[in-house]
C-alpha cells in the first residue's frame, strides 16, 4: 500500500494544550512541515515565547530556547551571531513582539539580523485571560477594555508589520490569515519563504499570521474564522508588505 501521510518529524508525539479552534496548533504544524521540507531540523534552534505558546518546545522536535517575555529577538540575535550556519527563528505573539518587546523587535530588525520571525496576531492576550493587546481592534471588548477599545484612551491597533517594513534592515514582511484551507496554504508558503530567506542569508524576514482565539473573542470556532476574514482583515489586510 502506498504511504500517503506520515508524522511530521519536527513535531513530537504530543497533544497540545490549546483551546478548540486556536490558531497556534496550525502555526506550529506549518513551521514543523516547512522545517522538514527544507531538511533543516537538526540545525534549527527555536526561540519560544511567553504567552499561550510558552510550551511550544514540548511540541517541536528540535532545539528550543525559551526567552523572557518580549526578549525573543535579543536572544535569537545572540544565537544566530554565534551560529550563523544554523536556522534560528522566533515565535512570538502580539503582546510579546509588539508591546513588551517592541524595542528588541525594532532593533533586531533594524540591525538586519538574518532571522525568521513568526508573529501570531490574535488581537488579545490569551495566557493571562483575554486582556487588550497592542493589536486589539477599536471597539473590541477585552477584560481590560470592557467597553471596547477606544482610540482616545488606548490608542490605535499597532501595525507593527507596516512599521517594520520601513526599516532598511528588514528584507521581507508578509501578512497571512490562518482562517481557511487557502489561507493556511498561503501561510505555509509565506513561512517557507521566510525560512528560505534565512538560508540564503537575505536578512530579517517576518510573517504575521492572523490567528483565531475563539475563547477570548467569545465566539464559536467557525465564527472566529469568519471574524478574521470579515473584521480583522479591515485593519490588517493580507499580502506582501515588503
Amino acid at each position: 500500500m502506498k504511504k500517503v501521510f506520515s508524522r511530521t518529524k519536527s513535531l513530537r508525539d504530543a497533544d497540545t494544550h490549546y483551546c478548540p479552534g486556536c490558531g497556534h496548533g496550525i502555526a506550529h504544524r506549518l513551521i514543523a512541515e516547512v522545517i522538514d521540507e527544507l531538511g533543516v531540523r537538526e540545525k534549527t534552534i527555536a526561540v519560544t515565547p511567553v504567552g499561550c505558546a510558552v510550551v511550544a518546545y514540548d511540541y517541536w522536535n528540535f532545539d528550543c530556547v525559551e526567552s523572557a517575555h518580549g526578549r525573543g529577538l535579543a536572544v535569537a540575535t545572540a544565537i544566530k551571531r554565534l551560529h550563523p550556519d544554523k536556522i534560528i527563528f522566533t515565535y512570538q505573539g502580539d503582546g510579546d513582539l509588539a508591546a513588551i518587546g517592541t524595542a528588541e523587535t525594532i532593533h533586531a530588525a533594524n540591525r538586519g539580523e538574518n532571522l525568521t520571525v513568526v508573529f501570531i496576531n490574535n488581537t488579545v492576550y490569551g495566557m493571562t485571560g483575554g486582556q487588550m493587546a497592542p493589536t486589539t481592534l477599536i471597539g473590541q471588548k477585552t477584560t481590560t477594555t470592557p467597553q471596547g477599545r477606544s482610540a482616545r484612551t488606548e490608542g490605535y491597533p499597532l501595525k507593527i508589520s507596516e512599521l517594520l517594513a520601513q526599516l532598511p534592515g528588514v528584507y521581507s514582511v508578509e501578512r497571512t490569515y490562518a482562517d481557511s484551507t487557502q489561507g493556511i496554504f498561503k501561510t505555509k508558503a509565506a513561512i517557507k519563504n521566510a525560512f528560505k530567506n534565512q538560508l540564503e542569508n537575505k536578512g530579517f524576514s517576518l510573517v504575521e499570521v492572523l490567528s483565531a482565539c475563539p475563547t477570548y473573542w467569545n465566539m464559536p470556532a467557525a465564527e472566529s474564522l469568519e471574524w478574521i476574514k470579515k473584521t480583522m482583515s479591515k485593519e490588517f489586510p493580507a499580502g506582501k508588505i515588503k
Binding site: I45, A76, A103, H107
Partner: peptide, 26 residues
C-alpha cells in the same frame, strides 16, 4: 568572537542569555 552594542541593558542581558544557551562563554 561576537560583540554587540545592544539597544538597552535589558537586551544585553538577554543576548547573553541566548549566547550562553547556545553554548558560548558570555
Amino acid at each position: 568572537g561576537v560583540f554587540i552594542q545592544s539597544e538597552s541593558e535589558l537586551s544585553a542581558i538577554n543576548m547573553v542569555f541566548g549566547a550562553s544557551a547556545a553554548g558560548c562563554r558570555a
